[in-house]
């Protein structure tokens, strides 16, 4: 057994024995890491994480980042990674807008898209050559005639995409539903979070509940290209040509979006307590599909682990 058995409570990586630490570090070749709450928190940095990632890279581990946050632009991500001294190429940064582009290309999608999402998200799709419709982008007149004018539309929309939109309104949701009545119109979800941390002490209702309205009204479950979506997992496995998912370590701070996603894909999982989950929440988790194999205070603990193992080796 290379990883901790599923029915055991997760172990803190710094409480592992020397032998267990060595085995753990040798049990994976590739690391997928979440960003918010792991690399940094919204409005502050987490000390020591750059050392953690560079220790893994120093051991030859392949490193990619997978976030559910498409509200930030690629340039903003790159700038912040650079500032922290973490080396990561643009192609190793996955967020739902990017994953949806890859998904649409794989299914050879060629049609009109109606989208409810942030501007940075939409610009990723436009840059990739997709044709988008959106709106209404202002409040409509309060009567049924105006509602009809805004939601009934004869454009041949063949995909509806829903991610985080600070300006989400009911006419947008109603309009999406009308397009989805067409049997060939796909429903595609980005992030599916129910509550979404967007700043210090600021959590908003995420896209999940609005996606649920569309799923229930149309009977279409939709494809999910944010964590913990099945379709995102399939794309990653294909893209990196992963034959043995057990040799991948998923690092994240959320039990559902990161741990459950990782387990679903067959990866090993490491929960860090530097973001959205506390030790008591971890201890209270009873569902086996959300229990990580390991946990740590933060990614900084990985640097310590790698150094200790290296020292013991000398």
């Amino acid at each position: 057994m290379e990883s901790a058995p599923n029915d055991q409570r997760p172990e803190h990586i710094l409480k592992l024995s020397q032998e267990q630490r060595r085995r753990f570090l040798n049990s994976f070749d590739r690391v997928f890491s979440d960003i918010d709450g792991v690399v940094w928190c919204m409005e502050y940095d987490i000390p020591g994480v750059a050392d953690g990632y560079s220790a893994l890279q120093g051991m030859g581990k392949e490193l990619s980042f997978i976030t559910n946050n498409s509200v930030r632009s690629m340039e903003q991500y790159e700038r912040r990674f650079q500032k922290l001294g973490i080396k990561v190429g643009e192609s190793e940064l996955w967020h739902p807008a990017q994953s949806i582009v890859e998904y649409l290309r794989r299914i050879k999608f060629d049609g009109l898209i109606y989208i409810i999402a942030s501007e940075p998200f939409k610009s990723v799709l436009r840059k990739a050559g997709f044709q988008l419709l959106d709106g209404p982008n202002e409040f409509i007149k309060e009567n049924f005639g105006s509602l009809a004018k805004h939601i009934f539309d004869r454009e041949p929309v063949r995909a509806v995409i829903l991610d985080v939109d600070f300006n989400l309104t009911s006419p947008k949701v109603l309009r999406a539903h009308i397009y989805l009545r067409h049997p060939d119109c796909l429903l595609i979800h980005g992030a599916t979070d129910t509550m979404l941390p967007v700043g210090n002490d600021l959590r908003i209702i995420g896209p999940g509940p609005f996606q649920k309205i569309l799923v229930e009204a149309t009977g279409k479950p939709g494809a999910t290209l944010g964590k913990p979506g099945k379709e995102l997992g399939e794309i990653l496995l294909q893209h990196y040509n992963i034959r043995d998912p057990k040799r991948v370590l998923m690092i994240g701070d959320m039990l559902e979006q990161d741990v459950q996603f990782g387990r679903q894909c067959g990866f090993q999982t490491l929960l860090v307590l530097s973001g959205g989950c506390t030790l008591s929440e971890l201890r209270a988790e009873s569902s086996p599909e959300r229990l990580p194999d390991y946990y740590a205070d933060s990614v900084a603990d990985l640097a310590k682990l790698v150094n200790d193992v290296a020292k013991a080796h000398v």
């Binding site: 600070f166 989400l168 309104t169 006419p171």
Partner: peptide, 14 residues
Amino acid sequence: VDFNMSLAKIMRAY
């Protein structure tokens, strides 16, 4: 019925 139900309004209600 609010013809312009919005995320911000839902958040305030919540």
